[in-house]
Design a protein around this nucleic acid. Structure first.
Length: 292
DNA sequence: AAAATAGTCAACCGCCACGAC
DNA sequence: AGTCGTGGCGGTTGACTATTT
């Protein structure tokens, strides 16, 4: 007998999300908070499986997400955390506010791996390529061992007495960068108000068109087709130095454009478990404060 | 200009951990 | 203690775009 699927897959939609679906999901979560993902699609009127809804929310719609490429600082942090934790992307992501495990995983696979190899470093072992190959990926072995013994997540760290705690790593990296990498003046520590501030410069010919903002532009076009959305005028955008997504826009802007939604979100900022959930953004000096 | 190739990233899949019963 | 349901994680895929030939 096979494992029961997470949801009844018959008639469920797959593939990229439409603006309409996003809107439904956001409205639902604003109203009801995050609970019981399995029930979300039915209640929200979506032909998606709960997993898909959760993924869409956590990786794309969450209000506290940063967008754009990882900064040099973030990249170095990821490298260092990866050296400590291996491919535990969610753990790594938890040290980078506003970044998702998926985003970091993608960035690792597409950018950092290559960069490290170019520098002669094995991305698996974080050792020089020549010697790393001789060691048969010890960190992976270490992880396997840790998994085998079913010790808590830090098992592999505990086994090496000289390894610093992950929490200390952040500080170490900052120091390291200050000493060896780029000077701290160049390393903007993330302020709460920056979490939702755009990372992607207004699109120029040099910026990567395949960045999230550009993917989003298609999505935005779809949104603009929706009858019940009012968009800030171009004048407004221009006067504020805004382009659509790549500056300060995300779907929350237009969701919040609706007065009723605004009130709704405000109500829930006081009562909903979603809103009170740490890391959800509403309890941070981020978007909600800009919105209200 | 068209085709081929490479790069990127959102989304899916399957497995695992954990809590409830 | 065993089973079931659910959420979460990491690996992988495939669609889309950019670049090169």
């Amino acid at each position: 007998m096979g494992r029961q699927p997470c949801c009844d897959k018959v008639g469920l939609k797959k593939g990229p999300w439409t603006a309409e679906e996003d809107k439904k999901l956001i409205s639902f979560i604003l109203t009801n908070g995050q609970c019981c993902w399995r029930a979300v699609p039915k209640l929200a009127g979506l032909l998606r499986c709960g997993k898909s809804c959760r993924l869409r929310w956590t990786n794309y719609l969450r209000p506290d997400l940063k967008r754009g490429l990882l900064s040099e600082y973030e990249e170095k942090l990821v490298i260092d955390l990866h050296a400590q934790l291996g491919n535990r992307w969610s753990k790594i992501a938890s040290h980078l506010p506003g970044r998702t495990d998926n985003e970091i995983k993608n960035h690792w696979n597409t950018h950092i791996k290559k960069k490290l190899r170019k520098m002669g470093i094995d991305p698996l072992t974080h050792k020089p390529l020549s010697t790393a190959e001789e060691h048969d990926h010890p960190r992976q072995e270490q992880k396997k061992q840790a998994d085998k013994t079913k010790e808590p997540e830090t098992a592999s760290l505990k086994s090496t007495t000289t390894k610093p705690k992950v929490e200390d790593t952040v500080e170490m990296v900052v120091n390291d960068i200050a000493i060896n990498g780029f000077c701290t003046d160049e390393v903007p520590l993330i302020e709460p108000h920056e979490i939702l501030v755009p990372n992607c410069a207004p699109s120029t010919s040099s910026s990567s068109p395949s960045s999230s903002s550009c993917h989003s532009s298609m999505f935005l076009e779809e949104l603009q087709q929706l009858p019940d959305f009012e968009w800030p005028s171009d004048d407004y955008n221009a006067s504020n130095g805004m382009s659509l997504w790549d500056d300060d826009f995300n779907i929350w802007d237009f969701v919040m454009n609706d007065e009723s939604d605004k009130k709704l979100a405000l109500d829930h900022s006081l009562s909903s478990p979603l809103i009170q959930c740490p890391g959800m953004g509403f309890d941070q000096d981020s978007r909600p404060h800009q919105l209200f």
